[in-house]
Computed example of a mutant assay.
Amino acid sequence: MTDLTGKSAIVTGSSRGIGAEVAKVLAAQGAGVVINYRQKAPRANKVVQGIVDAGGRAVAIGADLTTAEGSAALIDAALENFGSLDILVLNASGGMETGLGEDYALRLNRDAQVNMLEAAAQKMPAGSRVVFVTSHQAHFIDQVATMDAYEPVARSKRAGEVALRERIPALEAKGISLVVVSGDMIEGTITATLLDRVEPGAIAARREAAGRLYSVVEFGAEVAAMVCADVPTGHTEYVGGAEDFLRATS
């Protein structure tokens, strides 16, 4: 098992789902982990308690990533509680919620990702790693159409990935690497639930096309594995069911 003793990680959007699973794995490997939530403090505190009960270190911080104050709060928490910031997992995403404005998907999936990265990079030492979590439906959106209900989210996440990749040279100059993890639809996530509500049968259809879909636990483990994977900066790790997307782009 990877030894992350003495390291510190921020995992955005980690009060539930994929982010929570990533945080649990990193904490089990010895990292101090900042658990990020936007509104649901009890849920985040439950993740922290589970990590602490298992012998790990974690703290929950409420922060809206679409604000500069949100990014600063997470970074300050990592430095104050664990003494460093070595790992940044950009997992938070959204855009299918209602009542947050028509531009919310772009503000969260592009602008907030870039702002979080740029703020964190100022505090991360050489040898640090950033992991951006996306979906095949977003990563390949310029070549492969997706479900109508998901397209605004997919395009905003692709815009976020492009914007983050543009910063790779500046990150390399600091000795920081960036890796992208792209996954198929994940069973049990809020996005999958909302999509199936808007387009009944959508997830079953995707499951049939892909052969199978990863669970939240399985995908979280794959994301966590890329924190220390021996891959070059800019690498994209395809997790589950990417063959049909890759064929469509070849």
Rank of each mutant, 00 (worst) to 15 (best):
M1P: 11
T2F: 09
D3Y: 04
L4C: 06
L4H: 05
T5I: 04
G13F: 01
G13H: 05
S15M: 05
S15R: 09
I18P: 00
G19V: 02
E21A: 09
V22S: 00
A23M: 02
A23Y: 00
K24A: 15
V25S: 01
L26H: 07
Q29V: 10
Q29F: 12
G30I: 08
G30P: 09
A31G: 10
G32L: 03
V33W: 00
V34P: 04
R38Y: 09
K40P: 07
K46H: 11
K46A: 13
I51M: 06
V52C: 06
V52F: 06
D53I: 14
A54V: 14
G56C: 03
R57A: 07
V59N: 09
A60T: 08
A60V: 10
A60R: 06
I61E: 01
A63V: 08
D64G: 08
D64Y: 12
L65G: 00
L65Y: 01
T67Y: 06
T67W: 08
A68K: 07
G70C: 10
A72K: 13
L74W: 00
I75H: 02
A77E: 02
A77H: 04
A78K: 01
A78Q: 11
E80K: 15
N81F: 03
F82G: 00
V89N: 00
L90K: 07
N91Y: 07
E97N: 03
T98E: 14
L100E: 10
L100D: 11
E102K: 15
D103R: 11
L106M: 15
N109Q: 10
D111V: 14
D111L: 10
D111Q: 13
V114H: 02
N115A: 14
L117S: 05
E118R: 13
A119V: 07
A120W: 01
K123M: 13
K123F: 13
A126N: 15
G127I: 03
G127P: 10
S128G: 10
V130G: 01
V130R: 00
F132A: 15
S135G: 08
S135Q: 09
H139F: 15
F140C: 09
F140I: 08
D142C: 08
Q143H: 06
A145H: 04
A149T: 09
V153M: 04
K157N: 02
R158I: 03
R158V: 02
A159Y: 08
V162S: 03
E166W: 02
R167V: 09
P169M: 13
A173K: 10
A173F: 05
A173Y: 07
A173T: 09
G175K: 13
I176V: 15
I176H: 06
S177L: 12
S182F: 14
S182Q: 15
S182W: 03
G183V: 11
G183T: 12
D184C: 12
G188D: 10
I190E: 12
T191G: 14
A192L: 08
L195W: 09
E199C: 07
A205H: 09
A205Q: 13
A210Q: 12
A210N: 14
R212C: 04
F219Y: 10
A224R: 00
A224F: 01
A225R: 14
V227A: 08
V227L: 08
A229M: 06
A229T: 07
D230W: 02
T233I: 07
H235F: 03
V239S: 02
G241E: 08
A242C: 07
E243H: 05
D244I: 14
F245N: 12
A248P: 07
